[in-house]
Design a binder for these strands. Structure first.
Length: 298
DNA sequence: GGTAGACCTGGACGC
DNA sequence: GCGTCCAGGTCTACC
């Protein structure tokens, strides 16, 4: 079957999909040439389906197998969340008006970040981005999906992202030796087990109206989530008050404002403070000089 | 509040 | 092929 998902405007399908690296990692698959995104989704009734999405005039269209009425409602709800279709970007565009390094943001409808259907998936993915190279993040996440994800009946080579209850049943040794998560293994296992035993209601944070500092504190309580990871997750939750300062951020900010001299996180903070509640998005959308210089060298 | 060291893996490099 | 070094955030202990 085929159906459309409508979004608030402005909206650009490809811009959301490529907003960060999630589209390169299972169970996402981005087919660049066709500008088509695939995702393997496990529904609450445990049925696993394959979604194929491409942009259209009002948002994007979705191809999948036949769904019952309830399955379709659930799928649509998840897709609206993943693409942030209810997000109003007008105040962000107003805040950045007149800044040349951000002029492209409105033209490309930037400001939405591709989300996973569950916050659990986004937290696990984020933990797997910390203290490692991007290639290792891809390897660890793909392995986690292959090893623990429920298979698509029509193509068992494809799996959905593992649910907390499936991960809760494994053990730390397996996550270390087979999935190669290293010291992150106990963090992922503890998170899965807390959710599975109803000790933690992570998904409620998606709709929480907690003040930003309290929301951040809730994320920081999760083992494996520090300031950088919390800032990234807040961006995913649509709150851009904090900066995800990692080694890459120190590099590009130093190059942009400090002549490439070594800088501290507090200096990155000072540069972006004037953007207030938008600083995370401003950082995300900034047109870094370093990229253009690298382009020139190609 | 700030800092140092450990955590773990895979890739790059030298021999 | 083997050993060593390095990059990457977070946690814990300590000052």
């Amino acid at each position: 079957m085929e159906f459309s998902v409508e979004s608030s405007f402005p909206f650009n399908f490809k811009t959301v999909v490529t907003s960060h690296g999630w589209c390169q990692v299972k169970p996402f698959h981005w087919r660049e040439e066709e500008e088509t995104l695939e995702y393997i989704l496990e529904l609450s009734n445990r049925r696993v389906i394959r979604l194929e999405m491409e942009g259209d005039q009002n948002g994007f269209k979705v191809k999948t197998g036949n769904l019952s009425r309830l399955e379709r409602i659930e799928t649509e709800q998840k897709l609206h969340w993943m693409f942030g279709t209810d997000i109003d970007l007008s105040l962000f565009y107003k805040a950045i008006k007149g800044t040349s390094q951000l002029a492209h943001a409105k033209k490309k409808s930037m400001g939405r970040v591709l989300r996973s259907p569950t916050l659990f998936e986004d937290v696990v993915r984020t933990i797997l981005t910390t203290n490692t190279l991007w290639s290792a993040t891809i390897r660890m996440t793909n392995k986690l999906v292959e090893q623990f994800g429920e298979s698509l009946p029509q193509d068992p080579e494809l799996q959905a992202f593992p649910t907390p209850s499936r991960l809760a049943q494994t053990n730390e040794d397996n996550l270390r030796s087979e999935t190669r998560l290293g010291y992150r293994a106990p963090y992922i296992l503890e998170l899965a087990r807390r959710i599975d035993s109803n000790d933690l209601d992570l998904e409620s944070l998606k709709t929480s109206d907690l003040p930003i500092q309290e929301l951040r504190n809730e994320l920081l309580k999760i083992n494996g989530i520090g300031p950088y990871a919390a800032a990234n997750l807040l961006m995913i939750l649509g709150r851009s008050d904090y900066l995800p300062i990692d080694s890459w951020a120190l590099k590009v900010v130093s190059h942009e404002w400090f002549n490439g001299e070594p800088i501290k996180p507090s200096q990155v903070q000072e540069v972006f403070d004037k953007w207030g509640e938008w600083k995370g998005l401003v950082f995300w959308c900034w047109d870094w000089k370093l990229f253009h210089e690298n382009d020139d060298k190609k």
